[in-house]
Write a protein that binds this DNA or RNA. Sequence first.
DNA 1: AAATAGTTTGACAGCGTTGTCATTTGTTTG
DNA 2: CAAACAAATGACAACGCTGTCAAACTATTT
Lengths: 338, 338
Amino acid sequence: MKATINDVAKLAGVSIKTVSRVINNEPGVRQNTIDKVTAAVTELNYQPNQSARSLAGNKSYVVGFVYDNPNAYYIIDMQHGILDACKKHHFELLIHPVDSKSDNLLNELKDMLRQSRVSGLVLTPPLSEMTEVTDMLTETGVKFVRVISGKNQTLSTPCVFIDDRTAAFNITKHLIEQGHNKIAFFSGEEVHHSTGERLAGYLDALKAHNLDSRDEWIFAGEYSFESGVENGKKLVELTDRPTAVFACNDEIAAGTLFAARLQGLDVPADLAIAGFEDNPFSRQTWPKLTTAAQPTKTIASQAAELLFKHLRLPAKKEQVIENCMFEPELVVRESTKP
Amino acid sequence: MKATINDVAKLAGVSIKTVSRVINNEPGVRQNTIDKVTAAVTELNYQPNQSARSLAGNKSYVVGFVYDNPNAYYIIDMQHGILDACKKHHFELLIHPVDSKSDNLLNELKDMLRQSRVSGLVLTPPLSEMTEVTDMLTETGVKFVRVISGKNQTLSTPCVFIDDRTAAFNITKHLIEQGHNKIAFFSGEEVHHSTGERLAGYLDALKAHNLDSRDEWIFAGEYSFESGVENGKKLVELTDRPTAVFACNDEIAAGTLFAARLQGLDVPADLAIAGFEDNPFSRQTWPKLTTAAQPTKTIASQAAELLFKHLRLPAKKEQVIENCMFEPELVVRESTKP
DNA sequence: AAATAGTTTGACAGCGTTGTCATTTGTTTG
DNA sequence: CAAACAAATGACAACGCTGTCAAACTATTT
């Protein structure tokens, strides 16, 4: 019924090993032979049996996406981006949500690696930024690519950098250009490097415009709607209240918006609010949110592509590690317009 | 390094076949032997090699989740619910987003089935409700479970039913009880059975309360924010305008909310709005949305469990098909409170 | 034309399981 | 207590592919 490599070999008049060579793009096959084999493959609509392939070759043709992130939009975009790359390279994708705060995280990951025979992993924040995790993976010998917050730099593992700092600088600059000189910063969790990077960008911009930063305008928090609500409430209690808020992501911004309404503040007249990430719902709030857009799906494909390159490399100590960087782009909407 | 079935057999003092029996819960092994083997398995931390298993047994230990749905929250919840069940049964999950409107849909699905050797599928609307798709799958012999909108009934394939009609009835009843007697209905896409079911429930409720339904109060649309905005704008142009809207899902409801603000209408004073699905953002709008909550993650686990049961069944023609049903639950929030 | 080196191909043994069927062990019965 | 049967276990050949290494070609040199 289903064609095997044997059928292809017979039809093409070569040995199964040669068919195997053609299928795996191994060198040292005459063009003429390649053509015969490919013809036979198409005629029989032959699909290699992945189980047999990985059993015999002790490889897996599966990559894993390990994540801990409550943001559904982000995860879906990441998944779809990785899937695109997987399709191109004939790999399969295994998704593996975890709890990064679990005490058992490392063991759980080890178990997963053991069971699921993935040949590589894509990691996103906060996991990609936790040294325990990356150390463990390096030790285990599993190859992985990380999406992390920061500027392009050479690390010993392949990375996709997100230049949050510059993007945050641009957002803050935009707020300043709208006439604001008292701007609050609503943080996300500190385990996310993005929080620190965005704060740095915010401070950079203040300094560049000779504005003072004030500690009481920098609010600790987390990447959630509720955190935005909470800090929004605190904000209005301040004497000499800031007239603008730079929220570390759109969820916080949405929460801040909610709090503003609770307090009877008009946005943007009484309080301008900017978010970060360009989640779909940043276009569905009233008013729509100014934010910094990052092309998550493209980032994901890039990360996966880096992983595939890395998987093909021999396991040498010394080698050039490929990286790439993305800079989220300012998107101005009604929540910060005068 | 990594333990094989041979190591376990040696340690337990039995043949590899017996170890295999124990691992697969096959009958006809003495309890005493089972214990010896399990002990050896734990001691060596043995994990069966999935590739070898599926090659030898010609089975796959992989289920697929095929979907076409732009709602990230829904998809993530489905994925995580299915994953929970998979973990329990030692299966892996393959995700496969498709475009249900593509001309090539059926071929694409066939290719995917051929390549990825899944042993079963979970389908959600609209795919689960497209007869071309289900027919093709039945023909191909792939087992699958569907999540569909409708009341519990016996079909030839296992299903998880969502009783949208009753839930829609309850929502409409709630609006009526708030004193509304002119209630508009904002539809989703008609390919989704849920649209028809929810409309039916809406009409049921009107009739039950002796209210007339009017054709111009039933708006065609789709499951999107934009559709809600558009129909919201149309709504206000009506003379004798409805005072309440039952939107087919939360996104439409959010759009309607947006349109209301555009028009300077207060929600709920001038216009009450109810949604459906209980997406997280239904709690993040202002005011928060009344909606019908469906336990997506539980639904997903149930669906996967049904699939696993079905996979174990021999491929007979005559057999009892297991089903189950969920009824979304009314959640009253500020968008409909007087 | 023979010798050499390089290139292309094939034979065959695994990879770690499960399926089949034969063998052993245990239990019941006349 | 042997015969007859059932229950538990094992030996061994697949499963479809890749890795290894030897064989068969081809091209180049002497």
